[in-house]
Write a protein that binds this DNA or RNA. Sequence first.
DNA 1: GTCGTGACTTGCTTCGAACTGT
DNA 2: ACAGTTCGAAGCAAGTCACGAC
Length: 880
Amino acid sequence: MAVEASDKPHVSDGFDDDDDGPIIFRRNTTSKRNVEGSNAATSNARGSSLQKGTIIASRMMLPKESSGGFSRASTSHVKAYLVNSAIANSKSPLGGKPKPSLERKIPSGVKVENSSVMRLTKDNCEDSEDELDNKPLSARLKVNSNNANKATLAVVKRSSEDSDNVDDDDDIPLSARLKNYNVGTSTSSKYDNSDRKKPISKVQKGPQDGSNASIKQERPSTLLVKRPLDNTDSLHSAIKKPKFSVLDASISDKKVPMKPEPKVEEEEDDDDDIPFSQRMKKLSESSSLKKSKNVIKVNKAGLSFKKQATTFKKFSNNSEYSKSTKILPSSGDGQKKWTTLVHNGVIFPPPYQPHGVKMLYKGKPVVLTPEQEEVATMFAVMRDTDYMQKDKFKENFWTDWRKLLGKNHVIQNLDDCDFTPIYEWCQSEKEKKKQMSSEEKKALKEERAKLEEKYMWAIVDGVKEKVGNFRVEPPGLFRGRGEHPKMGKLKRRIRPNDIVINIGKDAPIPECPIPGESWKDIRHDNTVTWLAFWNDPINPKLFKYVFLAASSSLKGQSDKEKYEKARMLKDYIGNIRAAYTRDFTCRDITKQQIAVATYLIDKLALRAGNEKDDDEADTVGCCTLKIENVTPEAPNKLQFNFLGKDSIKYENTVEVELPVYNAILKFQKDKQPGDDLFDMLDTSKLNAHLKELMPGLTAKVFRTFNASITLDDMLNKDTKDGDVAEKIVVYNHANKQVAIICNHQRSVSKSHTAQMSRLTEKIDELQAVLNELKTDLDRTRKGKPPLKSSDGKTKKNLNPEALEKKIAQTTTKIQKMQRDMNAKEDLKTVALGTSKINYLDPRITVAWCKRHEVPIEKIFNKSLLAKFAWAMDVDPDFRF
DNA sequence: GTCGTGACTTGCTTCGAACTGT
DNA sequence: ACAGTTCGAAGCAAGTCACGAC
């Protein structure tokens, strides 16, 4: 049974008893509601400008990414960013000046022209080296490492824009810098920080302590027993990433990944049995140890911001990760995710309640059965969406609805249907609901909560954990994104006999909530984390899973591993870049394509790009780029234009290394539009190759790596002394750059234009007031009375000091409004949340907050604090 | 090596409550 | 009190990637 000392859900405990005052969350984005002329269905048509040219600002100009910039690191990142920032954000929010919308102001071309790009003056993948192509990359890299200095890489002197920022090794020949990487360890990498200087094998031997660890141990558990984050092998081995967890074994035979350090200590063997996650933990803990001096220092500083410390404590305290001393039994199979699992299954949406409102067919009311009416209502309520403009949507709806109507039904075509009565009925119902008193609303909410309470929690190995999506999806019309061929199809009602339950062997099987029906199947599979699933009614070969919530330890554990893997890439990235640069001119076309694809994934943070079926929207990623998605522009630019995930448009023109440019020309030769650019490549080949370079490396790791390293660099470069608000501006700016790198877009709020004009009006009004005040001041100084106000009233005769004060206040107000307006415009198509939730290592944020005395709740909202509980006790000196 | 399946992460929109300014 | 706005949470679609069968 769960160990439970409180009735309260543990997740919220940290908030409910907040005695430190209210937690205020703010964000400077515009409303996400109401999409300007578009919604999901038209996402491909929107926001294309976001990407346009902005990548360059943040990534394309990064010298480290150029052919030779392998050893370049964080500072270069930031430097490049700053240069671009100057270009792209001539009126940056940091500067507080009016800043027009990104896309309008920054034609990609301009940015490219301004970018400082290091070029290969000579290709370093000589034909003579082709003999190496048959050797494993890692082996080749060894050669490469020795040859790196000889590699005929040269750096074109960086352009003047960033010359004043040039950092120490900018002038060091690239070859020399490369050497650092090739020699191996992080000591040579500028990405490195001290806590990464030991190879995994070494670090794990260290004492498991670190200041954080000791703090954890001292803390008694007050609520539930929590699962430790790096809880021995049971949990870790449970994480289904065998390639990662068992990396030692898997890589030791033939294909040895590049090593961040050349020398492997004897102890390594001993660690082979230790799960990767655990080793990673030790790795970071060892860093805590090393930094203990600093910790003390920071702790001292911390006294001045007790409240902040309390927040961190509260979250790490409440975190399952920091409390438990419980060791889960070892699974032995390396796959076990849990030992005991208890939950109550899922809750179903209420049955359909017919409203009896008659729709019209050829102007006449039609009687429908409840089933037919239900589907008609689904269609009626979509009247205001863009789906109604899509023939495919209507066609699919009609096909499915007609099946319900039957061939001989009076309704014979959709065009003659008028759903207005139903639509209006729905609107009035909505309105009624809106008009309910707050007491009524509260009562309803409580009733619902009471009904759902038992489904909200699961007990995993004795720990009460929140369940994520315990509600079965209600029936509806499928809202595929982009030009999805199945949009409009009926998503039928899911019944208990569609649902497979996964639960512990000894746990009671959840009672089926619908009398007379039963579950499809009961499983006791502890190698997976799902609690239930059903087949997607739209695409039966896909599944809909019920998982634990993001705040659960299982999710937290895998989150942490994800970031550790990305951090690990930091130690390998130099060699990896050297390797793919070498292969840009390989004779082996597959290798050449792998090299170019990896380059694009690294440089542009593209997704891998799996193959897609015909019954899905036509979107692409790196491996599935089509000929027409990339347009070469002589001498060495590539113009990208494609629909990516969720049919979000990716538009970007970038300057690339000449060998890459030439390779793209070669890949396009003799192909037609519609043909694959990388015809020899797919994601499995690419990932198999990446795994040779670093254990567990896949294409998506590059995205996490690039996002997190960018945040880390920018925060550390740009944070200046100042008040919290200014620091938050820095954070949001970095967050925005990451969102741009990852092409995280959102649709423009429907009310955006109206909001902007309202703000403009207000600013104009204030400006008029300001002018009046200035005139009055002028007159007062000359001994004249103030002019009458615009409405003809006589104004009070103020003294010059009072007028000056008023002028200052008004000016400040105008400036603030202008700042808000600029921020709103600036972020109207940029979604900051996605990167925060998925790509930015929370420890970067937490450590930065600690270092700069920024309350963490200014950056993370309640759910993020819960999700990232595992990161709360990070060393303030943590660097990604 | 390819393909299909399964499990999980990522990503955008929507909903509705809370907040803010008047 | 009200309207407009912000924001967290939920919803669910759409990706990635591993693995096993053939």
